[in-house]
Nucleic acid binder design. Structure first.
Lengths: 332, 332
DNA sequence: ACGCGGTCCGTGAACGTTCACGGGAACGCT
DNA sequence: AGCGTTCCCGTGAACGTTCACGGACCGCGT
């Protein structure tokens, strides 16, 4: 059922022979270069089409190494946060004429290494959201620029885009306090990302409200995780009147769980998320959130990796940060 | 501020010289081949690391053309439908060891051609959701396999994965009728995709309910589009008790609009969408939908393009279809 | 001493394209 | 006629890697 002989690739030579010219002339015709007669150009083009000729990207890339392709690694493309980041990255890459190969590690840290292993020899730079320590990442990425999303690098070999939510979280807590909330809980993400919790606790302290240790519960960074985190929180401390969630996805889970509890949002329970996803405007009530510009996050990462790969002066650490701000909607 | 001299690439030759061996030995060491002494292998590896050597994917691909990369083109990655399709495609591609470069045409048909132009020389096959006629697409994709998502091809040059929602829509309408609905409208998408409308009208006819022409309105295939489509529908025909939407995104917009109208779903207005997105479980009430397996859709497209590119026998038309089925939740 | 198998390593060649260079033909001018 | 210019086209070389082949060396047996 399969072909009898290996269907050898049709090369520029074949086109040249078929058109009765030399390789170079074929190359000129296909690349719209000068120094070629109109009629012969047409003849070459016809021959190429007739033979189904397609230039080898490898041979071309070998002699003229201009096309840069960057690898984008996300834990889960179905998670709207990463979708938005990826979208921003794609747009920025397209604007620079770069190609982007996307890899989804399915939330599995082991996959991060496997992906880097595969990716390593196929791209010129890597942009990604990784959970593994830098030592591990160091292995796969042999000498190519790496930009870590949402994470400040420790090694000079890596670059990173940081997310600074401190001020935004402060706004959020201050807003809750101004609305009379005194017992404010937090739904942290697992594995517990201490930094956002610290922002929250610090903001609460500055606003003069105490946070009982039991008011902070943790759950998986999913819709269901947010729901169950709220459930355990309310089970132990029903008197909590507001919660700040690790991210919008968890906050939406909390919204759903509150509905099942018969709580009205924001009347009975105020909810504020983190990330500012577009998704937050689709739920009822619309989600208030400490918002970051997710697409700018992706674009910034591409901008930096572009500089690293071209040898331009990289962005200073001060510019490698995305700041969050409170977006007030209905849920708080 | 820039370096004085062009930082010529470090090649396998440099490593060989540095380690005091030949290219071939370096190649052996790096590719874990046999016929090499353990100590020299280590020496080569050290030299390679010290020089920051990275094999050229172009040179490698030239001599051993095994790595296939496929291009995935979607109109808008932020649209959850395409996110899910892309996710399925990515997973299927990874399972086959293929790389995927992703392009977002920002809902602009003109971008489709521009993208194909760019993509053409960089990938070995294309999977994508295109709106342009096949003649236009024919130009950019010079001889490489193309699989159209959600669309049946007319030319033998192209392949496609069809979405068959006829039976699912019939289930949906039958369900609405069984619940006593007699005045059922539809929110069609723009540009008006007549096929889904036909499924709807045919199903209504089979169920013995008449559909007034004015009960079908159209709107942009967005959340807002769905909302305004419902608004115009209700303004003209307030007595409609149920609507079938072109897709889930529009249905969610309808849900939101209904809330603004003070209508209770499903008590005052039943809503059924199309696609069966995961997003539908996050809204309140949860969206009933004529669901298709979006990830399977993406995976199937990759499966087919894989066969085309390897020369295996392609899937028969009967297998190149994804069927829809009604997923009942709260909104109807 | 000779052959022989095994282990390790190096040398051309090839992959398919573009770049730098050179050369022929046609044309116009002095 | 001679010369310079312009326009077209072809020939080596190079990009960096892997494959096929061959050769050197060592140890062992006869």
């Amino acid at each position: 059922m399969s072909s009898s002989t290996e269907p050898r690739r049709v090369t520029i030579h074949d086109v040249a022979r078929s058109a009765g010219v030399s390789r170079q002339t074929v190359s000129r015709a296909l690349n719209d270069k000068a120094e070629i007669d109109g009629s012969t150009k047409q003849r070459v083009l016809d021959a190429a089409r007739a033979l189904g000729y397609r230039p080898s990207r490898f041979a071309r890339g070998l002699v003229r190494p201009d096309t840069t392709t960057i690898g984008l690694v996300v834990p889960d493309l179905l998670n709207p946060f990463f979708t938005e980041v990826a979208s921003g990255a794609l747009e920025a890459a397209r604007a620079r004429g770069r190609h982007v190969v996307v890899y989804d590690t399915t939330d599995d840290p082991a996959q991060e290494l496997a992906t880097l292993e595969v990716i390593g020899s196929q791209v010129d730079a890597v942009v990604g959201y990784f959970t593994r320590p830098e030592d591990d990442l160091d292995r796969g990425t042999a000498g190519i620029p790496v930009v870590l999303i949402g994470r400040e690098p420790r090694t000079p070999r890596f670059s990173g885009i940081a997310i600074d939510g401190e001020e935004g979280v402060r706004e959020a807590v201050a807003h809750l306090v101004s609305r009379g909330h005194r017992r404010i809980g937090m739904l942290d993400g697992q594995p517990e990302a201490t930094v956002r919790r610290q922002w929250f606790l610090r903001a609460a302290a500055e606003c003069g409200v105490r946070v009982h240790p039991g008011w902070v519960t943790a759950g998986a960074q999913t819709v269901d995780g947010g729901g169950s985190a709220l459930a355990t929180l309310l089970a132990a401390h029903p008197d909590v009147t507001a919660v700040f969630a690790f991210n919008d996805v968890m906050a939406i889970g909390a919204l759903r769980e509150a509905r099942r509890f018969g709580l009205r949002v924001p009347a009975d329970l105020a909810v504020i998320g983190f990330d500012g996803l577009a998704l937050g405007t689709l739920v009822d009530p619309e989600l208030s959130s400490v918002a970051i510009d997710t697409r700018a996050l992706g674009a910034l990462a591409v901008e930096q990796v572009e500089r690293l790969v071209t040898g331009a002066t990289p962005l200073p650490p001060g510019e490698l940060v995305v700041r969050a701000a409170l977006h007030l909607r209905e849920s708080a």
